Amino acid sequence: MTVKKEVKLLWSYKIDKTERWLSEMAEHGWHLTGVNQWTRTFTFKKGNKKNVTYRIQYGPKSRSIPLTLQKEGWDTVVSEGRWLFLKNEEANISLYPTRDEVVRRNRTHAYIFSALAIFQLATHIPIILLSIVSLTSQDDSFFLEDSLWILLFLLAVGIGLAFFAIYVFKAYRRFELREMDATTDLISKGKKMRKFKLGWMYHLEETKTWLEKLAEDGYELEKVTASIFTFREIEPSNIKYECIFEYKVQPSFFTTHKEFGWKLKYSSNMTLLNYSIWAKHYNVDEPVPQFSYDKEEQKQSIKRAFKMNIGISFYLILLLSFSLYMNYSMDEPFITWSFSGVMRPLLLALLLFWVYMFVQILLSYRKSMREYKNY
């Protein structure tokens, strides 16, 4: 029996790519027989060349696949820890195993590594850099050489962790977009027009009305990049827009609404604290489509967005106020040609802006809730 082993260090963060690789191995006659999750080693046995579809699942240990999947031809190849490797040799497959747990697992890893990297960059890296600068000014060359090597090693570890966090997050996000069908619907025709709308996330109801008015004027939203809205010139149309905030997006969120004819125009990079914009065309003689026909659910959506936005603005006001206080000095003018003298007016401008935004969020929420007071 001919056996081959291959190592794939980061296979669990690119599940779809790993599945395709396993299928390609089967096409060349190498069939999966074992996986070591600690050494990241895949074991294959030589056999006949076959077309095999693989799916990788993650979940509780010692579990079996549902009977419905077994009837569709799915069979367990390897069970390793919480990983389950399934295969199907049928030509036409109509039912596939869900990978919600894989998405949740990789999402958790992405957030943990990102948090560690941010903490490392914000706390350790500045201290390490200052220590290096301090040491280079000393005369003790023996002590300097040993200390610098240690600090440079710690610096390399911090930077390496940051790059690894970026890799994990990008791999998870690409996989999640495909699995949750969170890709945006672009428009290929029509002259482009761009508009800048700062702080639109803090005025979701106003943003929705603004987009619908532009549709009546002949401009349909194509995509959103930060605060830049890209439109395509079309015939004046009736388009219903919805700007949604969710604390946590469920795996079926995007697919379900797309099945009802809604087109996704924007989704923020995280499924936690997620903002999204949806659009749906309708005729004049048709009822105006609703993202949700439950008025109580609509009210709760507005309340969720309000709590999130008011919390962010309040936090920024406190942070900017504290920073302004720490940079204030009675011994020098408010504006001077120094670092503190430049930072003070900048901090004050940002503070006034967020105070304005705070008031606008309150007024927008009050206006939105008045529309639903009869429900």
Rank of each mutant, 00 (worst) to 15 (best):
T2H: 12
T2A: 12
V7L: 11
K8D: 09
K8V: 06
K8Q: 13
K8S: 07
L9Q: 11
D16A: 15
T18R: 05
T18S: 14
E19F: 06
E27Y: 08
L32A: 07
T33Q: 12
V35E: 07
F44K: 02
G47E: 12
K50P: 00
N51Y: 10
G59M: 07
P60A: 11
T68G: 04
D75F: 07
T76P: 10
S79H: 11
E80P: 03
E80C: 14
L84G: 03
N88M: 05
Y96N: 09
R99S: 10
T108N: 14
H109D: 11
Y111P: 00
Y111D: 09
I112R: 07
F119P: 01
F119L: 13
Q120I: 02
Q120W: 04
A122W: 07
T123A: 12
L130T: 12
S134N: 12
L135Y: 10
Q138M: 13
S141H: 12
S141T: 13
F142R: 08
F142A: 15
F143Y: 12
S147Y: 08
W149N: 13
I150H: 10
L152C: 13
F153Y: 13
L154Q: 09
L155V: 01
V157T: 09
A162R: 03
F163A: 14
F164I: 04
F164A: 07
I166S: 09
Y167H: 11
A171L: 03
M180Y: 15
M180Q: 10
T183G: 15
L186P: 00
S188H: 13
S188N: 14
L198V: 13
G199L: 03
T209Q: 13
E212Y: 02
L214R: 10
D217V: 00
E220Q: 08
L221Y: 07
V224N: 02
T225N: 12
F229D: 04
F229M: 05
F231Q: 02
R232G: 01
E235S: 14
N238C: 03
Y241A: 02
E242M: 02
I244C: 02
F245C: 01
K248W: 13
V249S: 08
P251T: 07
S252D: 15
T255R: 11
F260M: 08
K265F: 03
Y266D: 04
A279S: 15
K280S: 05
K280I: 14
H281Q: 08
H281I: 03
Y282S: 00
V284P: 00
D285C: 04
P287F: 03
Q290Y: 06
F291V: 05
S292Q: 07
Y293F: 08
D294M: 01
E296F: 10
Q298Y: 02
S301V: 01
S301G: 15
I302P: 01
I302S: 02
F306N: 03
K307G: 09
F314Y: 10
Y315T: 11
Y315A: 14
L316T: 05
L320M: 10
L324F: 08
Y325L: 06
M326P: 00
E332T: 14
I335K: 06
T336F: 06
S338D: 09
F339Q: 06
P345F: 02
L346F: 15
L346K: 05
L348M: 13
L351R: 04
W354A: 01
F358M: 08
F358E: 08
Q360D: 15
L362W: 11
L363F: 14
Y365D: 03
K367A: 13
K367Q: 10
S368N: 12
E371C: 07
N374V: 06
Y375Q: 09
